[in-house]
Simulated scan of single mutants.
Amino acid sequence: MTELDWAAWVGFVGTACVIGAYAYLTSTDKPNPFILHGTNLAGAALLTVSLVFHTNWPSLVLEGFWAAIAVWGLAKAVRGRKQAR
């Protein structure tokens, strides 16, 4: 059995962030976009750290897109907050 190193544990925390964000989205009628996209961005970043040490190129590309979408969502939320003022 392979022992888990620190990079694998960082990846597990990232996975928990992504799953938690999806659960939050699904369970909330009006999700806070800063919580949703911020948690997704944190998850993508942590999974990317793990994937740099345990390279899986398709997953690494997926996390790049996941992070880009999260940044886009955060930017939309910031613009929406500014327009509401």
Rank of each mutant, 00 (worst) to 15 (best):
Glu3His: 06
Glu3Gln: 13
Leu4His: 03
Leu4Ser: 06
Asp5Asn: 07
Asp5Ile: 11
Ala7Gly: 04
Ala8Cys: 06
Ala8Phe: 13
Phe12Gly: 05
Val13Arg: 00
Val13Glu: 01
Gly14Tyr: 03
Thr15Pro: 02
Thr15Gly: 13
Val18His: 00
Val18Phe: 01
Val18Glu: 00
Ile19Val: 14
Gly20Cys: 12
Ala21Cys: 08
Tyr22His: 06
Ala23Glu: 09
Tyr24Ala: 11
Tyr24Lys: 04
Tyr24Val: 09
Tyr24Cys: 08
Leu25Ala: 15
Thr26Arg: 08
Ser27Asp: 15
Thr28Cys: 06
Lys30His: 13
Lys30Trp: 10
Asn32His: 13
Asn32Leu: 15
Phe34Leu: 14
Ile35Ser: 03
Ile35Asn: 01
Leu36Asn: 00
His37Ala: 03
His37Val: 02
Thr39Phe: 00
Asn40Pro: 07
Asn40His: 12
Leu41Val: 03
Ala42Asp: 08
Ala42Glu: 04
Gly43Asn: 03
Gly43Trp: 00
Ala44His: 00
Ala45Trp: 02
Leu46Ser: 01
Leu47Met: 15
Val49Phe: 08
Val49Met: 14
Ser50Asn: 09
Val52Gly: 08
Val52Phe: 06
Val52Pro: 01
His54Asn: 14
Thr55Cys: 07
Asn56Ala: 07
Asn56Phe: 14
Trp57Arg: 08
Pro58Phe: 10
Pro58Gln: 10
Pro58Val: 07
Pro58Trp: 12
Ser59Pro: 08
Leu60Lys: 08
Val61Phe: 09
Val61Cys: 07
Leu62Val: 13
Leu62Met: 11
Leu62Asn: 04
Glu63Pro: 04
Gly64Asp: 09
Gly64Leu: 04
Phe65Ile: 10
Phe65Met: 09
Ala68Tyr: 01
Ala68Leu: 15
Ala68Asn: 06
Ile69Ala: 05
Val71Thr: 11
Val71Ala: 12
Val71Phe: 03
Trp72Phe: 15
Trp72Lys: 13
Trp72Arg: 14
Gly73His: 05
Gly73Asp: 03
Ala75Val: 15
Ala75Glu: 04
Ala75Thr: 12
Lys76Ala: 11
Ala77Gly: 08
Ala77Arg: 02
Ala77Ser: 09
Ala77Tyr: 03
Gly80Glu: 14
Arg81Tyr: 13
Arg81Thr: 10
Gln83Leu: 13
Ala84Asn: 06
Ala84Gln: 12
Ala84Tyr: 05
Arg85Gly: 12
